[in-house]
Write a protein that binds this DNA or RNA. Structure first.
Length: 568
RNA sequence: UGGGGAUUAGUCUAGUGGUAAGACGCCUGACUCUGGAUCAGGUAUCACAGGUUCGAAUCCUGUAUCCCCAGCCA
């Protein structure tokens, strides 16, 4: 576990759900058991929003004595689901650092049991087979302000319903011909209680049960029963299921089975991204991004590829908390958590993203030497490495200005800066091309400043990173920015009537060839570094031996940007 | 009055009758071989209006605003 400052040791409940569970434990409800579950439908990739639910459910599952969290797939709709998603979801949950142990389940494992319970419902007069078409059923359902009407089939005898239901299972009917409905109350102000459909006919191959079934249970029914079957004590779900709770309770109550308690919380929203499955799918399928794991996506697999650590994601979820209010969390919080984590853990390297050549005119040609650079100033145990230095080096183009503004402490004519870990240099001359662009900068170094400090103790405010031109290795670096500049793209699109894809930031990806110190040439995919003064970067799986590719995970905080903005 | 929720600083979250806490962000300053990190300080009277009370973000009443629900999706 990483040390999260937001959760001081010894504190117990940190949100209303944990308060409820703590009380239940104290009062002996559920016999002192605590069992939660994370129940995705395997119809897409997990995103950062799911991470909140994962952290909550698995977090509770490991926090209470004897507690556990089940990993369960809500695979009740064969037409949208696929094994590919099952595998990616499992991998993502694991990567986030959670473990379901033996408790991996599938709603489809309960199909037979669910079916038997459905027959029980019919026998008890709590369900009936209805022959209304989907269209008719919608009309019979009424509206939000008007009650619904009872279907003509509502009073079908239990014998007949049972017979029809068995024939539904046997495959005698086409899709849509019949459904099994709960017999509750067509006049309920809660439309979910107006005789909701429990089973529909779907002649489709299921990714796990093949064509064993042609009738499939609906979410409300399957979920309530699955929770009960697994002995889930606290069934944590998002706010939009609030109206479903009466139905969730109804299913367990009329069947007289184990009672679980559904508790709803607000889902996570993040600025500068979209989270709906529909929109994410659109981004991928219409090729606005390179795939589900394109580092600009909010999916777990994309965040992983981009370089986010699981610890940082969990830390953010901890800090965001759990409540019942619909909110939008600033991306800045996630970025803070990442920097906080990587500042302590990532090794430093020097890389120049936009090279400008500097010739140190008083440094002997052909000569070179090595300077020692610490790998992480926050952690001595990470040791040091040596970095080659020579007469010609690259510095960041931004680190030189011919006519610098006030408080620009970097390189400028006549101005002295420190080359990090190396020595002090002073700009003596500027070489330009025919268009007046600076192509080269000439400097003189202070031979007595080897290591970075002058013996006379003079202060040099600016320290810049650099790379020896003779030893530099080229690096493909992918600079990512937010996919959407608007903090609330979905809202902005809805408000203006625009298609959300029109709001995509055209500068969300910039690919550059950077010059890096030699140590970076053999980076393995997944390795994360801080490129000094620039940000955190992660080697991408596209890297080839000798041809590393890095993704910029996030920049470092840049207070110079603020200063220069203030100066105009 | 269709039903169900929500409303504390720019953003999250705590506080459950005794005079607003923490985090991110932002602003100041210190320090610094990353204008990074770190450290110090600053940054709201709790949607609104009444009421109860010695005292209310916390209780009551009313109002406003926002979110969710009419799939044989989850």
């Amino acid at each position: 576990m990483s040390d999260s400052q937001s959760t001081p040791a010894g504190d117990n409940p940190t949100d209303f759900i944990r308060s409820i569970i703590t009380e239940d434990q104290a009062s002996g409800a559920y016999g002192g058991r605590v069992v939660t579950r994370f129940p995705p439908e395997p119809n897409g990739y997990l995103h950062i929003g799911h991470a909140k639910s994962i952290c909550l459910n698995f977090g509770v599952g490991e926090q209470y004595p004897g507690a556990r969290c089940h990993m369960r797939f809500d695979d009740t709709n064969p037409t949208r689901e696929d094994i590919e998603y099952v595998e990616s979801i499992l991998a993502d949950v694991k990567w986030l650092g959670f473990d379901w142990g033996e408790h991996l389940y599938y709603a489809s494992d309960y199909f037979e049991q669910l079916y038997q319970y459905a027959e029980q419902l019919i026998l008890d007069g709590n369900a009936y087979v209805d022959g209304l078409t989907a269209d008719e059923m919608r009309k019979y359902r009424g509206t939000l302000t008007e009650p619904g009407r009872e279907s003509p089939d509502r009073n079908r005898s239990t014998e007949e319903s049972l017979d029809l239901f068995r024939r539904m299972r046997a495959g005698e009917f086409a899709d849509g011909e019949y459904v099994l409905r709960a017999k509750i109350d067509m006049a309920s102000p809660n439309v979910n209680m107006r005789d909701p459909v429990l089973y529909r006919i779907r002649h489709a191959e299921h990714h796990r049960t093949g064509d064993d079934w042609c009738i499939y249970p609906m979410y409300d029914y399957a979920h309530s029963l699955s929770d009960s079957i697994e002995g889930i004590t606290h069934s944590l779900c998002t706010l939009e299921f609030e109206d479903h709770r009466p139905l969730y309770d109804w299913c367990q109550e009329v069947l007289g089975i184990y009672r679980s308690r559904q508790i709803e919380f607000a889902r996570l929203n993040l600025t500068h991204t979209v989270m709906s499955k529909r929109m994410l799918r659109r981004l991928v399928e219409d090729n606005y991004v390179a795939g589900w794991d394109d580092p600009r996506m909010p999916t777990i697999s994309a965040l992983r590829r981009r370089g986010y650590t699981p610890e940082s994601i969990r830390d953010m979820c901890d800090r965001v908390g759990v409540a019942r209010r619909n909110t939008v969390t600033e991306l800045a919080l996630l970025e803070h958590c990442l920097r906080d984590d990587l500042n302590r853990r990532a090794q430093r390297r020097m890389t120049v993203l936009d090279p400008l050549k500097v010739v140190i005119t008083n440094y002997p040609e052909q000569q070179s030497e090595e300077f020692e650079a610490v790998n992480n100033p926050e952690d001595d145990s990470m040791g040091a490495r040596s970095v080659p230095f020579g007469r010609e080096i690259y510095i960041e183009r931004d680190d030189f200005m011919e006519n610098p503004p006030r408080r620009f402490y970097r390189l400028a004519p006549g101005q002295e800066v420190r080359l990090r870990y190396a020595c002090l240099i002073t700009c003596t001359d500027v070489v330009k091309d025919a268009h007046g662009n600076v192509t080269e900068v000439h400097c003189a170094y202070d031979p007595d400043s080897r290591g970075g400090n002058a013996p006379d103790g003079r202060r040099v405010r600016g320290t810049i990173h650099w790379v020896s031109a003779a030893h530099a290795v080229p690096l493909e670096v992918r600079l990512y920015d937010n996919l959407f500049s608007d903090p609330d793209p979905a809202g902005a699109a809805a408000g203006s009537g625009d298609d959300f894809v029109d709001l995509i930031n055209s500068d969300s990806l910039q690919v550059v060839t950077a010059m890096a110190e030699p140590a970076l040439s053999k980076a393995e995919p997944g390795e994360r570094y801080q490129f000094e003064r620039l940000g955190y970067f992660c080697a991408d799986p596209d890297s080839q031996p000798g041809k590393p590719v890095f993704n910029r995970t996030t920049t470092l905080r840049d207070s110079w940007a603020r200063i220069s903005r203030q100066q105009g």
